[in-house]
């Protein structure tokens, strides 16, 4: 089966149907193992105590928030270049999931920030970038809802999403230039990870679980969107077909009305 075959919605739905149960099982299992390690195996931080465990949700959620946007941007290229409806569906399905992960990252960040910095919110570079990202996601969701014709909505959203990609990069740069309170990124370093493996392993497990969660949610959401469009197509056909049937009912009804 080539990628082109998958691009057919029917084959795609068949694939989703076959894969989804396994994905759900894998996601639940990975989340269970990840959370077990995060909450029961990983040691507490000598400075932060138990609150460090928020990191195991915060960091993967933040990664996923960006990954969703990447997914949306790639799908948008698919919409604009190949004009493929499945790419439209993928872009539309990504937006609410991305918004949810962005919200989760912001929320867990705020909850973590309270004991760390003594306040729920600081205008720190990354928090600010994510707030802007959330506004962008919500704007894109609103734009999807505002245009009825799904093909037109997809193209318009693809344009704004791709402009947003450039913007996300500029925002990240400009906001970091503007101010930063966060620690510098410490997972990826040329000389190996700076974090101890007792924390890194649960973090990796949670990241894996979140990726699986994203794939599951994205496939489910795409399936729902295909069905929604199918219903729309059926309704439009119902509206355009059957002029003969309706005219005959009118002639039948006329004497009854005259009476």
């Amino acid at each position: 089966m080539t990628l082109y075959d998958l691009a057919n919605p029917t084959r795609f739905l068949k694939l989703v149907k076959a894969v989804l149960p396994w994905l759900i099982v894998a996601t639940v299992a990975a989340l269970a193992v990840g959370l077990y390690f995060a909450f029961l195996v990983a040691p507490e931080d000598y400075q932060q105590g138990q609150t460090v465990r928020i990191m195991f949700v915060h960091v993967p959620a933040a990664q996923l928030a960006l990954m969703c946007y990447a997914m949306m941007a790639l799908s948008s290229i698919g919409s604009l270049v190949w004009k493929h409806p499945l790419a439209d569906v993928s872009a539309k399905a990504s937006a609410p999931i991305g918004a949810a992960f962005t919200f989760l990252a912001l929320f867990s960040g705020a909850v973590w920030g309270k004991p760390m910095w003594g306040t729920f919110w600081v205008w720190d570079a990354r928090l600010t970038s994510f707030l802007v990202l959330l506004i962008m996601y919500l704007g894109i969701i609103a734009l999807w809802k505002a245009i009825e014709d799904p093909i037109k909505a997809a193209k318009v959203n693809a344009i704004i999403t791709l402009v947003g990609v450039i913007n996300v990069i500029i925002i990240k740069f400009s906001v970091e230039w503007w101010n930063t309170l966060h620690q510098p990124p410490s997972i990826i370093r040329a000389d190996g990870p700076a974090i101890h493996s007792s924390i890194l392993i649960p973090l990796g497990l949670m990241a894996l679980a979140f990726v699986l969660l994203f794939v599951t949610l994205h496939l489910m959401s795409m399936r729902n969107e295909i069905m929604r469009r199918r219903i729309r197509a059926m309704r439009m056909r119902a509206a355009s077909v059957a002029p003969a049937a309706s005219s005959s009912t009118v002639t039948k009804a006329a004497p009854a009305g005259a009476r």
Partner: peptide
């Protein structure tokens, strides 16, 4: 219509 989402073959999914 040759449009993807109007295709009759999608019925298979629901029949199954």
């Amino acid at each position: 219509s040759e449009h993807m989402f109007a295709g009759a073959d999608l019925d298979d999914y629901f029949d199954e």
